[in-house]
């Protein structure tokens, strides 16, 4: 099964390489993270402004600052004279249409819902940049990190809840990574869907186990009084697939190792 998946990946990576683009602009912070890892630095003409902010992005700020940032408008992007624009599902329709009207080559990427989809996206970005082999290397590195974060044995109940209340549920990539690292996600027990706002009261009535949150110091006092344990899980680690997944998995594994049986 594993061999078959690798074969499939190799096949995906070995597509025909056209003349590789020399001025790539990415419109999305998650695609930015893949792009800087698979393209030559001189190929990247611009990345999204989110990537310049260490609090929002999992990208190393020193790496991000090497590339000019744009705020996502078509004219800013055109001013960067791109020969390929990487769009996301969330790029505004008007911006997409404007770029396409001006005849610039575009390629659109979705939001991966699984590790396999994330791998496929990494390979697709790498192929678009003309460096399929680097995509394969990145996928292998991510797989190694996932393997290292793998927890064998009993799963411990846990819930991710940002201080805003935002809680990822079943079907999100981060919850799959939680399961992988030895956590049993509790969001479904509270009736929460894929991305819901979790209220505090149900968490007092029924403990979520370990609470992973971006700002444990801002935990509601009632949760502290109820004895809910909270550990820090940075907010920039759970929004993107791709190479950020490796860091998220590593942090989850680190937290899991700290859980006393």
């Amino acid at each position: 099964m594993r061999g078959f998946r690798l074969l499939l990946l190799l096949f995906a990576a070995a597509g025909p390489a056209a003349a590789s683009p020399q001025r790539i602009v990415s419109m999305n912070p998650c695609i930015d993270q893949i792009l800087v890892g698979v393209a030559d630095a001189r190929q990247i003409a611009g990345i999204s402004h989110w990537s310049h902010d260490a609090a929002a992005s999992a990208m190393n700020p020193a790496v991000a600052r090497r590339f000019p940032a744009h705020f996502g408008t078509a004219e800013e992007v055109m001013a960067l004279r791109p020969d390929l624009v990487l769009l996301s599902l969330h790029t505004p329709l008007a911006t997409k249409a404007a770029l396409q009207r001006m005849g610039v080559q575009t390629q659109e990427f979705g939001v991966p819902g699984s590790v396999a989809e994330s791998h496929a996206q990494v390979l697709a970005v790498a192929r678009a940049a003309g460096h399929a082999e680097r995509g394969l290397a990145m996928v292998r590195a991510i797989d190694r990190a996932l393997l290292a974060s793998r927890h064998v044995g009993a799963q411990t109940p846990a819930l991710i809840r940002m201080s805003s209340g935002l809680t990822p549920g079943e079907g999100t990539l981060i919850v799959q990574l939680m399961g992988h690292a030895g956590f049993r996600n509790q969001s479904a027990a509270y009736g929460l869907g894929m991305w819901d706002m979790a209220a505090v009261e149900p968490l007092v009535r029924r403990s979520p186990g370990l609470l992973l949150t971006d700002r444990p110091e801002r935990l509601h006092p009632v949760l502290r009084r109820a004895g809910v344990r909270a550990v820090r899980f940075p907010g920039n680690l759970f929004a993107c697939a791709g190479p950020g997944m490796a860091r998220a998995a590593a942090r989850l594994a680190e937290i899991r190792r700290g859980v006393r049986p």
Binding site: S163, S164, D214, P221, A239
Partner: peptide, 24 residues
């Protein structure tokens, strides 16, 4: 706003609610 998460927090607050407010 610097991060999409901070943004979500402000938008949620501006809609008006008393959910999960503290004694403080």
């Amino acid at each position: 706003a610097p991060t999409p998460f901070a943004l979500g927090e402000i938008v949620t607050w501006s809609m008006g609610a008393l959910t999960d407010r503290t004694m403080a």
